[in-house]
Nucleic acid binder design. Structure first.
Length: 531
RNA sequence: GCGCCAGUAGCUCAGCUGGAUAGAGUACUUGACUACGAAUCAAGGGGUCAGGGGUUCGAAUCCCUUCUGGCGCACCA
């Protein structure tokens, strides 16, 4: 990197840097290798002392003030409130939540948001579906649920609740009378349902933002005014898309946003043919509102099927803030559900889709959360019910948890072996860390010391899956060290008749379990002391 | 037709904002329990990083291009 700047050969630059490095106290040796790599050997004591740091900071080890309290808005889930969450929603939910925690961990001021799409035609469908269940609750025979309505059983209690609240008030009334109140009632009921679903995964949003309120209190006009002032709104005619034409395509003038000025492919419509605002118009207003609330770092988590929508919203954010705020959209790919390697078939027809709650109930919150974070967000992910509950190294959740549990086990054994030994946190901090000088011990400690760097880079890249991979690697080194104790008795953690070294090793594995716990905490998974 | 994302071991995937001999798991082969939990560990084979150009001291990583797969493509949400 410096070669061009300094106009020197890489090896010469390396030599200069090496000279300086040699002066540092904890450095024992510096050598230059290959085309200009600098290998630095640190004193063992430098590595060993990091354990003390971990013990002192506990699960705060790895926290930083990197974000400097800057406000970050993470919007995730944001599912239409027309029914319970299904399994496909798990990934975005877990991803967004872990990312939010991760950013908080490095010092950002994070707000977790859910955008409620409670203004569109689908909500009218919900209202009509609920009305049918309302009639049913009043004793009418509704027969088969009409096609186009939501047939799910979850609306039955909503119908009953409507009767409880309104009696037969809406029974023979025209839709224009009951649509609004029932829509509002049903939406609230669905949001309650969704919140309960999210609670099973330990997900709680700070803000639930209703799209409807933007329509009702002039929020949309307000958002669009800002674009208007910048001269970014005009009336024009869009060219028909190339390739196959939509059946009902008509060329007509419409209100457009100049998205192309900000890198989008075409300008985007703000009004529908019936004069109503588009979904996009509301999204302009919503993102404008986020910016107005002081967020300059915006993150939206969407399903991959919304990929085509990314550029236009980014265009809006850039336009509204003159490029001062940035929107990162993280797209989550599909989750392929398997059972013993066979795909689980799901159809949209009633009763045949797996809900989020079903999955959590079957395999547990911790498993769902961890597995959802074992792939980067834009790669598809396989979720095999058989595999994720398996108790083997094939299952990363188990493997990491097992490492943590083994530490607890050692402490239980140690307490039995040395009934008179003080193994309190204070005592561990006083352990002689210089005794930890076996190569494999130092290796484990070095990996532990990487933790703060991992957290920071994962946060910076908005990639929580890096935490999962790190935890797996760390656990792996721990298991390896453990097994060395089988061959070499002197490497075991508990050594008979040697309190000093036992205490040192207890300190080391305590630090290990602290880091595991701290990583799991970011992912929203509980560490376990027994399996 | 256009745009976005992907293509790395037989399979599922990592690879940290360009660095040293590309790594795990799985599967296959072979070893390790009078134990601090073998629910684990150790060793081995397995690669034209989709193909082709380019940028430079140096590319799985950046640029161009071709091929293949997924998603999307006025007004729906």
């Amino acid at each position: 990197m410096l070669v061009k700047q300094a106009k020197m050969k890489p090896r010469d630059i390396a030599a200069l840097i090496a000279d300086e490095l040699r002066k540092i106290d904890s450095v024992t040796d510096v050598e230059i290798a290959g085309p200009g790599f600098i290998n630095i050997r640190l004193k063992a004591s430098f590595v060993q002392e990091q354990i003390l740091k971990v013990l002192e900071l506990g699960t705060d080890y790895g926290r930083s003030d990197y974000g400097d309290g800057e406000k970050v808005n993470v919007e995730y889930v944001s599912v239409n409130p027309t029914g319970p969450l299904h399994v496909g929603h798990c990934r975005g939910a877990v991803f967004g939540d872990a990312l939010a925690t991760l950013l908080d961990h490095v010092g950002y001021d994070v707000s977790r948001e859910y955008y409620i799409n409670d203004a569109g035609g689908q909500i009218d469908v919900l209202a009509r579906s609920a009305y049918v269940r309302y009639l049913e609750a009043l004793g009418e025979n509704i027969g088969e649920i009409e096609g186009g309505l939501y047939p799910g059983d979850y609306l039955i209690p909503v119908g009953e609740a409507l009767v409880e609240k309104y009696g037969d008030k809406w029974k023979d009334q025209p839709e224009s009378e009951w649509l609004n109140p029932i829509r509002s009632f049903a939406t609230d009921a669905m949001m309650d349902l969704i919140r309960e679903d999210l609670n099973t995964l330990d997900i709680q949003h700070d803000v639930f933002f209703s799209e409807l309120t933007l329509h009702e209190n002039g929020g949309i006009q307000k958002g669009l005014e800002q674009l208007e002032e910048k001269g970014l709104i005009y009336t024009g005619v869009l060219e028909a898309p190339k390739g196959k034409l939509p059946d009902d395509w008509e060329e007509r003038p419409q209100t457009l946003f100049k998205a192309t000025e900000f890198g989008d492919d075409v300008d985007r419509a703000l009004k529908k043919s019936d004069g109503a605002w588009t979904y996009f118009a509301a999204d302009v207003a919503y993102h404008s509102d986020k910016v107005a609330r002081g967020f300059n770092i915006l993150i939206d988590v969407w399903g991959a099927d919304h990929g085509g929508y990314v550029k236009r919203v980014q265009s809006v954010v850039t336009a509204l803030t003159d490029g001062k705020a940035a929107l990162d959209v993280r797209l989550c790919q599909m989750v392929k559900l398997l059972r013993d390697g066979d795909p689980v078939k799901m159809s949209k027809r009633s009763g045949n889709f797996i809900t989020l709650r079903d999955v959590v109930k079957e395999v547990g919150k911790d498993v769902v959360r961890f597995i959802m974070l074992t792939r980067k967000n834009d790669a598809s992910l396989e979720f095999d019910f058989a595999r994720v509950t398996e108790q083997s190294k094939d299952n990363p959740v188990f493997y990491v948890q097992y490492g943590h549990a083994r530490v607890s086990s050692v402490f239980r054994k140690a307490a039995a072996a040395y009934t008179d030994m003080d193994m309190s946190e204070d005592a561990l901090k006083k352990a002689d860390l210089n005794l930890l000088n076996d190569e494999s011990e130092l290796q484990l400690i070095k990996t532990m010391v990487n933790w703060p760097r991992i957290v920071e880079s994962a946060a910076l890249a908005h990639e929580p899956h890096r935490i999962s991979y790190y935890l797996y690697d760390l656990a792996s080194e721990f298991h390896a060290l453990w097994n060395k104790g089988n061959d070499r008795v002197d490497l075991r953690f508990i050594i008979d008749n040697n309190k000093e070294i036992t205490l040192s090793r207890l300190a080391m594995i305590r630090a290990f379990s602290i880091i595991i716990a701290s990583g799991l905490k970011i992912l929203g998974v509980e560490p376990r002391n027994e399996m």
